[in-house]
Deep mutational scan, measured.
Amino acid sequence: TIEDAIKKLLKLAQKGQPYTFGDFTVTSEEEAKKLAKWLKKQL
C-alpha cells in the first residue's frame, strides 16, 4: 500500500539512503516527509 511505501521511505531516509519512488529521488528525511505529505494528498 501507499502507507507501507511511506513507512519504508521514511526508514530509508533516516539511514541516509537515497530512495527512488516513481519520478522522485529522496535523499533526506526532510524530502521524504514532503513526499509523504504529497502522497497522502493523492489518496
Rank of each mutant, 00 (worst) to 15 (best):
T1F: 11
E3W: 15
E3R: 13
E3G: 07
D4T: 07
D4W: 14
D4C: 15
D4V: 04
D4L: 10
A5R: 08
A5N: 02
A5G: 03
A5M: 14
A5L: 15
I6Q: 00
I6P: 00
I6S: 00
K7T: 06
K7E: 09
K7C: 15
K7L: 12
K8A: 12
K8F: 13
K8D: 02
K8T: 09
K8V: 12
L9E: 00
L9T: 00
L9M: 09
L9Q: 00
L10Y: 04
L10Q: 02
L10D: 01
L10T: 01
L10N: 01
K11P: 01
K11F: 12
K11R: 10
K11I: 12
K11E: 13
L12W: 15
A13M: 11
A13Q: 03
A13W: 14
A13N: 03
A13V: 12
Q14E: 09
Q14A: 14
Q14Y: 11
Q14R: 07
Q14P: 04
K15Q: 10
K15S: 11
G16C: 15
G16F: 14
G16W: 12
Q17K: 07
P18Q: 07
P18M: 08
P18K: 06
Y19L: 09
Y19F: 15
Y19Q: 05
Y19D: 03
Y19P: 06
T20F: 13
T20V: 10
T20K: 05
F21S: 03
F21P: 02
F21G: 02
F21A: 03
G22S: 07
G22A: 09
D23P: 13
D23L: 15
F24H: 03
F24A: 04
F24E: 01
T25S: 06
T25Y: 12
T25E: 05
T25R: 04
V26G: 02
V26M: 08
V26R: 03
T27Q: 04
T27I: 11
T27Y: 10
T27G: 05
S28W: 11
S28G: 04
S28H: 02
S28D: 05
S28L: 11
E29F: 14
E30T: 08
E30R: 07
E31Y: 11
E31M: 09
E31D: 12
E31L: 14
A32K: 02
A32F: 09
A32Q: 02
K33T: 05
K33D: 06
K33E: 07
K34R: 08
K34F: 09
L35K: 00
L35D: 00
L35W: 06
L35T: 00
A36G: 02
K37S: 09
K37H: 08
K37M: 11
W38I: 02
L39R: 01
L39F: 03
L39Y: 02
L39D: 00
K40G: 06
K41C: 12
K41N: 08
K41W: 14
K41A: 10
Q42E: 03
Q42G: 05
Q42L: 12
Q42R: 12
Q42P: 01
L43R: 03
L43I: 08
